[in-house]
Simulated scan of single mutants.
Amino acid sequence: MGKKVWLGSVSHMAKIAADRKTKHLCSRIQPFEVAVVDHADLDEMAALSLLQANVRAVCNLSPFLTGTYPAEGAKRLLEAGIPLYEVQDQTPQMIDEVDGALGMVRKNELWIQTEDGWKRKARLSKVSEQELERRWQEASERLDEVLSTFIDNTLSYARAEKEWFLRPMKRPKLRTQMEDRHVVVVVRGRHYREDLRMLATYIRDYNPVLVAVDGGADALLENGYCPDLIIGDMDSISDEGLRSGAEIVVHAYSDGSAPGEERVEQLGLSYHLLPAPGTSEDIAMLLAYEENAKLIVTIGTHSTMIDFLEKGRKGMASTLLVRTKIGSRLIDAKGASLLYQPRWTWNGTGLLVAATLVPVMAALTIHPVARHTMQLWWMQWSSWAF
Rank of each mutant, 00 (worst) to 15 (best):
A219R: 03
A219H: 07
A219N: 06
L220W: 08
L220I: 09
L221A: 09
L221Y: 07
N223E: 15
N223K: 14
N223C: 09
G224F: 09
Y225H: 12
Y225T: 06
C226M: 11
C226L: 14
P227S: 07
P227L: 08
P227H: 10
D228C: 10
L229G: 09
L229R: 08
L229P: 11
I230V: 08
I230A: 10
I230R: 03
I231K: 02
I231F: 03
G232E: 13
G232F: 06
D233G: 14
D233P: 12
M234L: 02
M234N: 05
D235A: 10
D235C: 11
D235R: 05
D235V: 04
D235W: 05
S236T: 15
S236D: 14
S236R: 12
S236H: 10
S236N: 15
S236G: 13
I237C: 05
I237K: 01
I237M: 00
I237H: 05
S238G: 10
D239T: 14
D239I: 11
D239W: 06
E240V: 12
E240I: 12
G241A: 13
G241N: 12
G241K: 13
G241M: 11
L242M: 15
L242D: 07
L242P: 04
L242I: 04
R243T: 12
R243A: 12
R243M: 13
R243D: 04
S244W: 06
S244A: 15
A246E: 07
A246C: 04
A246M: 08
E247H: 03
I248M: 04
V249T: 08
V249M: 07
V250D: 05
V250W: 08
V250A: 07
V250K: 04
H251S: 02
H251R: 00
A252C: 11
Y253C: 08
S254K: 13
S254R: 13
D255V: 10
D255L: 11
S257A: 07
A258F: 03
A258Y: 04
A258M: 09
A258V: 09
P259H: 11
P259T: 08
G260E: 08
G260T: 06
G260W: 08
G260D: 08
G260Y: 03
E261M: 10
E261S: 02
E262V: 11
R263H: 03
V264C: 03
E265W: 00
Q266K: 15
Q266A: 14
Q266L: 14
L267S: 10
L267M: 13
L267E: 08
L267N: 10
G268A: 00
G268K: 07
G268N: 03
G268W: 02
L269V: 00
S270P: 01
Y271N: 11
Y271A: 04
Y271M: 09
Y271F: 15
H272I: 03
L274K: 08
P275V: 02
A276M: 00
A276G: 00
P277R: 01
P277T: 00
P277N: 02
G278Y: 00
G278D: 01
T279I: 01
T279V: 07
